[in-house]
Amino acid sequence: MTAITSPAPIAFACRVRRSLFRVLSTALLGCALLAASASNAMLPNEHAIVLNSGDGTVSLIDRATRKVVKTFPVGKEPHHLIGTLKDDEVVVANAVSNDLVFLDPVSGEVKRRLPRISDPYQLAYSPDGKWFISISLRLNRVDLYSMPNYELKARIPAAKTPSHVVFSSDSRMAYVTMQDSNELLAIDITTQKEAWRMPIGKTPAGIWLSPQGLIFVGIMSSDYVEVIDPVKRATVKKIVTGKGAHNVFPMGNGSKILVSNRVDGTITPVDYKTLVAEKPIKVGSGVDCMDISEDGKEVWATVRFEGRVAVIDMTGQKPIHYIPVGRSPHGIYFRSHARRDQ
């Protein structure tokens, strides 16, 4: 007679339970992944972080529900924000407060504040992690800091009106658009001095460096993106995108960038290999910074002069949602973003 206390049936029952658990957990995981892919693979409780430069506040938007869940003061005139190289913090540049504020990249909560950073407007980390640049647009200066302690190494005069910055992939050069002298400025990081500058289109703003080594600059007083070969120090092409071409963001798919055109209120996809522009997408007045979902299906863009964020469906090529935020929303970031380098 088999006793009911015999280990065999218990082991069998356990095996059945384990199998059931495995099946169920696989099914649940599958469902979760499916749900995640439908919502652009965002993290749980992920927030889009938006800087309202006119209000001096941050708006946190729940990425899933697309609703503002919190607005809090962050400093005076916050314009740009970037993720650190590991994306473990988001750095907000408060131009008038003269400080940096570090936020949690997922929740957007304030982690710490770094004072005595003079007039920070736009920021960049070098790819090798050794350098940090803060652009002083208002006061004609580029500040170079060594990492990891944000130690000021050089204040480089940069008239007139340095605007946006990008590092070369080998971290040896930094390229800065000069909004009021209509130039591209190259800074040698080794000597910590200006290396050269070349004339480009009127009122250059956003800048991005392609894996092919070409620089793309939004020309705000015109309607094109200027493509520059920094080795030859020559303009390769002017790609017409729309009036008030301003900022340039890669889609992370190895082929396209998105250009915001402030005056036309559009975003134009451009193939950065063939240098051909596609049809612009109407977004709103003063469209500026963007972040792009990991799968490239959604673009979130600040629409500065309308005080809102546009969510653009890149499959249907149109805005599908507008989220009211504060005055003059400028920088925007979310953690599950597309790659910035391609």
């Binding site: 007083s221 008030g244 007045s285 003059s328």
Partner: peptide
């Protein structure tokens, strides 16, 4: 905000662009 945005987009922004003063757009 809607009123300011409308005035700006309709009248001011195109004028600023035409005059080549985009550095002053904000």
């Amino acid at each position: 905000t809607e009123l300011v945005s409308w005035v700006h987009a309709t009248l001011v922004s195109p004028a600023v662009y035409s005059l080549g003063l985009m550095s002053w757009s904000e």
